[in-house]
Nucleic acid binder design. Sequence first.
DNA 1: GTTACGCCTGCGC
DNA 2: TTCTGACTGATTCGG
DNA 3: CCGAATCAGTCAGAAGCGCAGGCGTAAC
Length: 527
Amino acid sequence: MRFVELAATSAAVGATSGRRAKVELLAAALRSLDPDEVPAGAGYLAGELRQRQTGVGWASLRDLPPPAAEPTLTVGGVDAAIEEIAAVGGAGSQARRRELVGQLFAAATADEQRLLVGLFRGELRQGAQAGLLTEAVARAADVPVAAVRRALLLAGDLRAVAVAALSGGAAALAGFGLQVGRPLAPMLAQSAPTVDEALTATGVPAVVDVKLDGIRIQVHRSGQDIAVFTRSLDDITGRLPEVVAAVRALPARELVLDGEAIGLDAEGRPLPFQETSSRAARRTTASTTGGAPVAPAVLAAAERAGETVLTPYFFDLLHLDGVDLIDLPGRERWAALARVVDPTLLVGRVEVDDPEQAGAAFAAAVDAGQEGVVIKDPAAPYDAGRRGAAWVKVKPRHTLDLVVLAVEWGSGRRQGWLSNLHLGARDPRTGEFVMLGKTFKGLTDELLRWQTERFLGLAVEKGDWVVRVRPEQVVEIAFDGVQTSSRYPGGMALRFARVIRYRDDKTAAEADTIDAVRAIHAGRVTG
DNA sequence: GTTACGCCTGCGC
DNA sequence: TTCTGACTGATTCGG
DNA sequence: CCGAATCAGTCAGAAGCGCAGGCGTAAC
């Protein structure tokens, strides 16, 4: 199939607003792909490359050669070119990669370039991603959507599922059961501002799990083979030998576990997320042995040497010794989990019948330095990949009244509006404002309209990207916490900042101070 | 010839 | 990770 | 009774922070 046809489909999808119409367009394109082009082509239609890492990003796509007049590329040819680009490495690779990218884009028409840019950047913005492609695959293969969705969530691989559906139909999809060693999409949680609202969603009785501020892990064990996967199904087995060792010690032959890995201090309190994250991202550590068994003594030595050790805590069990548990109620999965996992490796959990008990559990978790709680309906099955009402997370929320220092012009659907706010806290000693981060969240279209006018009125320097303003407008900002920063002048940055409302009743001189931010950072408690 | 630093990409939240 | 807005299918409301 | 209004579920897209690691290059 010619690549230009996919580019045309993508453009048509982008110009369509209705979801059903998008699905029809995508399905038609899927049907006309050659069988051997389905893995790459189906991915392109969802805005994904078959190659997860290409080494080509935003900056590499800044200046491109002029587009070709005539389309010559094929889907298979593009896939091969990207494969080559992704494979280059070592000294001289940046020049070589730039050369290959230049060749590919020079051979592409304007429409094809637009699609390629979107694919490389991972921001196709055609209004259709894996979710709609799932429906399109079902339509193209004439099988129920539910069958495709289930296969996708259990296989975690859009391309493989598309191939199976289009070539083998419902029968082939039925073959995608849970398979030990192959990661599945983890179940996700909705979010609620309060414990009471979370309980309204889940109903009572409910269970309240401590929410640990670490990284999500899914651990598979088949005999002595153990693999650890992240939330996005990346294999990080080699980075977490301590988790491998812990699971190897469990009395079971086959397991699929869901949990969180986190670093702890000497008192057993959680380390800041930055430290857990740093350790989990490191590919080589003193204690890394490539997934081979690690003796407890080795881990203890690593800990003494100052190396952060991550401890796994589990909250769900999806498979045990040949039996899939995902369709069982959560309560039964937990019972099975508690039989095979040492209690010290279970997340804290209590069963509650009313909001008071749940509130107490939440307070206790926060008191212990944890991120919050996840409230769960104990009757619900494990809904892989879903963000349903069966699991609802609740975290404490901080707020501060900060001052807007500058605003950035928005893009995409925010084109023409001032969008991203630069936020600062008052420094009472100098009278200046110390920038703590940016946010674009929490803004309604009405607020965007209002602030565009407001900040153009306060502007002192109107750049193409950033508009600097007189520091006069106060805004109430919610955030999850304060983290150490090397980028911002105060050495601190807000985590997940979002706008609550503008405070027209406050002047900049009444805004919160950098000292208040420091207090939250130091105490890591509610502010 | 090293070392230090900056830019870029990718991924955790 | 948070949040808003658009679309859809189902359910309820009102003339 | 039937069309209109409302609700809940899903999906897409607006972008944030820090950190690790690969590569290139300037400084020593």
